[in-house]
Amino acid sequence: MRGAQGARQWCWRWRRNPLRRRDDVFEAWIVLIVWTVMVLGGTVAGLVTAHAAEASFTRLRHDRHAVPAVLVVGTGSAVPAGESAVYDHVRATVRWTASDGSPRVGSALVESGHKAGSHVMIWLDARDLPTTAPPTGSAAATESSLLGVGAGMALGGLVFGFGGLVRWRLDQRRYDRWEREWERLGPQWGHKTP
């Protein structure tokens, strides 16, 4: 019996009631639509975003490749690539052979602690230019998941905010109507009945 009573209280805006206003029914539909879009739309947005990010990371792993290079300058005098001192890669000048066989010289991220003339591995993009290493499979999966969750939450937050704005506007209309009714009926209550 308690479940039926709870359901009646939960769906009170749809039940016939002499005190129910059109705004109450409209608000009930707005709440239902907002929650449906938040749950279903947020899920779809999250899944689509995660899938697109995973595809992008897969494309990066496919386009980038590692090649051997020789350090032109030792990494002891190179500028650290990261903000913190614990970052183990530095930007250094290296020499490598491009896929067309031509020698190239440029700046790339390499492991620190090597002397000039040391052999290191660098990552190149599809145009044979130095770039960063692509994300590993687990890092890509984690980042894709986080991006998907963020996209779902962002859509849910926008929809929830829009629904809150509509409900706030409905409350303002109700307050205006109550004020007009009070102005009309309030003075009648000030007189004493004989």
Rank of each mutant, 00 (worst) to 15 (best):
Val34Arg: 03
Glu54Lys: 09
Leu109Trp: 12
His65Val: 02
Val70Ala: 02
Gly117Tyr: 01
Ala28Tyr: 03
Arg169His: 10
Ala7Trp: 13
Ser102Arg: 13
Gly164Ala: 14
Arg22Asn: 05
Ser77Phe: 03
Thr131Phe: 09
Tyr175Lys: 14
Ala85Thr: 08
Ser84Gly: 13
Trp12Ile: 02
Leu170Ile: 15
Ala139Phe: 02
Gly152Val: 07
Asp125Phe: 08
Arg2Pro: 00
Asp63Val: 05
Leu60Gln: 14
Ser107Gly: 12
Pro130Cys: 08
Val149Gln: 00
Ile30Ala: 11
Arg59Gly: 04
Ser77Asp: 11
Phe57Asn: 00
Ser56His: 14
Leu47Arg: 07
Phe162Glu: 10
Ser77Trp: 01
Ala85Ile: 01
His114Ala: 08
Arg180Phe: 01
Arg174Cys: 01
Met153Cys: 13
Val72Ile: 04
Ser118Trp: 04
Ser56Lys: 10
Leu40Ile: 15
Ile33Thr: 12
Gly186Lys: 04
Val90Leu: 09
Arg95Cys: 05
Thr49Trp: 00
Val166Asn: 02
Ile30Met: 10
Cys11Trp: 07
Ala45Val: 04
Gly148Ala: 09
Gly106Arg: 01
Leu155His: 04
Ala50Arg: 03
Val39Asn: 04
Val67Glu: 03
Arg16Cys: 00
Leu170Cys: 11
Ala28Phe: 06
His89Pro: 00
Ser77Lys: 13
Arg167Cys: 03
Glu179Trp: 09
Pro194Arg: 08
Thr93Lys: 13
Arg16Asp: 05
Gly186Gln: 06
Ile122His: 07
Asp63Met: 06
Asp125Leu: 12
Pro134Ile: 03
Gly156Trp: 05
Val39Pro: 02
Trp29Met: 10
Val48His: 05
Val73Ile: 05
Gly186Ile: 05
Gly74Cys: 02
Trp96Thr: 07
Thr58Phe: 01
Gly3Thr: 15
Ala108Trp: 06
Arg184Glu: 11
Ser145Met: 15
Trp14Met: 08
Gly82His: 06
Arg173Asn: 13
Arg174Phe: 05
Ala45Gln: 03
Gly76His: 12
Ala98Pro: 11
Arg2Ala: 15
Ile122Val: 13
Ala140Met: 04
Trp178Glu: 12
Val79Gln: 15
Pro18Tyr: 04
Arg177Lys: 08
Gly190Lys: 09
Arg22Ile: 01
Leu146Gly: 00
Val86Asn: 14
Ala28Arg: 00
Glu111Met: 11
Ala85Asn: 06
Val120His: 09
Pro68Asn: 07
Thr131Val: 11
Phe26Ala: 12
Leu158Arg: 01
Trp12Phe: 06
Trp178Arg: 14
Ile30Cys: 09
Asp176Lys: 15
Ala53Ile: 13
Glu143Phe: 11
Gly41His: 08
Val110Ser: 07
Gln5His: 01
Ser77Ala: 14
Gly137Trp: 01
Ala52Thr: 09
Gly164Gln: 15
Leu129Met: 13
Ala50Thr: 03
Val159Glu: 03
Val73Lys: 04
Val94Leu: 05
Arg173Phe: 01
Ala55Glu: 10
Gly113Asp: 03
Leu185Asn: 12
Arg173Trp: 06
Tyr87Lys: 13
Met153Arg: 00
Glu143Lys: 11
Leu146Phe: 11
Pro18Ser: 07
Gln9Ser: 05
Pro194Gln: 01
Trp14Lys: 00
Thr49Ala: 07
Thr97His: 03
Leu155Tyr: 07
Arg61Lys: 02
Val159Asn: 07
Pro135Met: 15
Asp176Ser: 13
Tyr87Arg: 13
Leu60Arg: 05
Val31Cys: 11
Ser102Val: 14
Val39Ala: 15
Pro18Lys: 02
Arg13Ile: 02
